[in-house]
Amino acid sequence: MLRLIDQGWRLVADDQVMVSAEAGSLRAAPPAALHGMLEVRGLGILRDLPVAAPAVLRLVARLVPRAEIPRLPEPEAWTAAGITLPVIRLDAFAASAAALLRLALLAALGRARLEAGAFTESQFTGPQGA
């Protein structure tokens, strides 16, 4: 998460996330007591960070060991409140994790075309669109 924030992304929530369904999409927000807080290993707990919440969920990233990430993954999906999102498997400790997440999000938003793998346009058509 820290690498993404360093690249200009904004925090939604750390450790605990409240997910709700609204107008055909899932939204994520931090609990009020944790709003704007981020725990950074080796530094401590930061407060009053800019927050992009509530945020519409477009993609689910499952944090798994590298050994559980196939070179060409089969499509996966996650469903909550009747809303289905594409899933990617991500090794959070890989140097490429932030770049992979950014590319997967572009594909989930329809801004990049994923020909095969974790999900494609023909395998996933969510209510969120591009």
Rank of each mutant, 00 (worst) to 15 (best):
M1E: 10
M1S: 15
L4T: 07
L4S: 14
I5E: 01
D6W: 10
Q7W: 05
G8N: 09
G8H: 11
R10A: 11
R10H: 12
L11H: 00
L11T: 00
L11P: 02
A13W: 02
D14I: 02
M18E: 14
V19G: 03
V19M: 04
S20E: 13
S20G: 09
S20W: 04
E22V: 08
E22D: 14
A23V: 10
A23P: 06
G24T: 09
S25D: 13
A28D: 09
A29L: 11
P30I: 00
P31M: 11
A32L: 10
A32P: 15
L38I: 04
L38R: 07
E39S: 14
E39N: 09
E39M: 05
V40Q: 06
V40A: 10
V40T: 09
R41D: 14
G42D: 01
L43Y: 07
I45D: 00
I45H: 07
R47F: 10
D48Q: 13
V51M: 08
A53H: 00
P54W: 03
A55T: 11
L57Q: 05
L59A: 06
L59S: 08
V60N: 06
P65Y: 01
A67D: 03
I69H: 01
I69A: 06
I69D: 01
P70G: 06
P70S: 06
P70M: 01
P70A: 10
R71T: 04
L72F: 07
L72P: 02
P73T: 00
E74L: 03
E74C: 01
E74M: 01
E76H: 00
T79D: 04
T79N: 06
T79Q: 15
A81P: 05
A81V: 00
A81R: 12
I83K: 01
T84E: 07
T84P: 06
T84K: 02
L85R: 01
L85M: 05
V87I: 09
L90F: 11
A92V: 09
A92T: 07
A92N: 08
F93Q: 15
A95G: 15
S96P: 02
S96R: 14
A98F: 11
A98P: 08
L100D: 13
L101A: 15
R102I: 03
L106H: 09
L109G: 11
L109T: 06
L109N: 12
L109A: 14
G110C: 08
G110N: 02
A112Q: 11
R113I: 13
E115Y: 11
G117R: 05
G117V: 00
G117Q: 06
G117M: 05
G117C: 04
A118S: 12
F119N: 00
F119H: 08
T120F: 13
S122K: 15
Q123L: 15
Q123C: 15
F124P: 03
P127T: 09
Q128C: 10
G129L: 08
G129N: 08
A130I: 07
A130E: 14
